[in-house]
Simulated assay, not measured.
Amino acid sequence: MLTFFGNHVLEEGDLCVYSGSIIDVLGRVGVGEQAVRSTLTRMVNRGLLRRRREGRRMHFGLTPQATRVLEDGRTRIWKQGAVNDDWDGGWTLLGFSLPDSWKRQRHDLRSRLTWSGFGALYSGLWIAPGKVDVADVVAELGLTDHVKIFHSRADESTDIGLMIRDTWDLESIAARYVTFDKRWTAHLNAGSGDDPIATRLRLVSEWLWTIRTDPRLPARHLPPDWPARPAQDTFRRVAEQTEAPAHRMARELLETVRQASNR
């Protein structure tokens, strides 16, 4: 659902999409109507979507919170890329201590840290390559008083390659890239005679799933055959191939209104 709104609404700002159009597009990738409706309701309840009624039709648009989430995703996908060739040698360290009863808060913090490129150096000490600004993430979760953030460099005695292998599951990360690359290279070889809006929705969703646990580790400390680069090249080739046809189809399929008020 977030991929759908990122593909077709984020750039339009105040656009709201008719629920029937959303059901139509997600149905093209095998998502049932009831699942779409329940997901829309959950996202409204979580403050990610807002409703706008036009007659008997309900439309959905982005909230500021969802816009921030999608803009962060857009940066990861289109600007940063999957390969970190320009690491400056710095690290961001984040330490936290939460009460044992705060299971949900701990889960939410770990999930957001993973997306931001962190790995667990120790149970309450997480680390990410480069200078990562996570203060807003911590504040949004209401955990500022329980978290300490530092920016530092490793001592010469630290084996960075070993630390990386101990902190992150490189085999699992690499396997995701290999699987993605094989699947979408096969798509390129098969030609582009399918549904472009559905193809692009699957493409971006699968790429997000692939990169979500990749902290963009410094390339100099990764195996020379690290599969992120060829996978990224394949992603961008399919993305370029589907961009214009998917947007043309979206203009034909999606019934929209402008977001003049919140309801």
Rank of each mutant, 00 (worst) to 15 (best):
V238W: 08
A35Q: 09
G6S: 01
E255G: 08
N45Q: 15
K182L: 13
V69F: 04
V69R: 12
H107S: 14
R229E: 15
R183Q: 12
T144I: 02
F235G: 03
L10T: 14
N7C: 11
E33A: 06
S192V: 05
G142Q: 04
E12T: 03
P230T: 09
V134T: 09
E206P: 03
T167N: 01
T199W: 01
T67G: 05
L70A: 10
D108N: 13
W207A: 01
I211Y: 12
D159K: 03
T67V: 13
D88Y: 07
S21D: 08
N262G: 09
C16Y: 03
A190V: 02
R112H: 12
L10D: 09
L48F: 14
I22M: 06
A250N: 07
W91C: 13
F96D: 04
Q34Y: 13
R200N: 01
I23W: 00
W226S: 08
T256Y: 08
R229H: 13
L109Y: 06
D169L: 04
E11N: 14
R183P: 01
R237L: 13
N262C: 09
P218C: 03
V83D: 13
R153H: 14
L143I: 00
F96Q: 03
T213P: 03
D133N: 11
R165W: 00
R42V: 14
E255S: 12
Y18M: 07
A35D: 10
G142R: 08
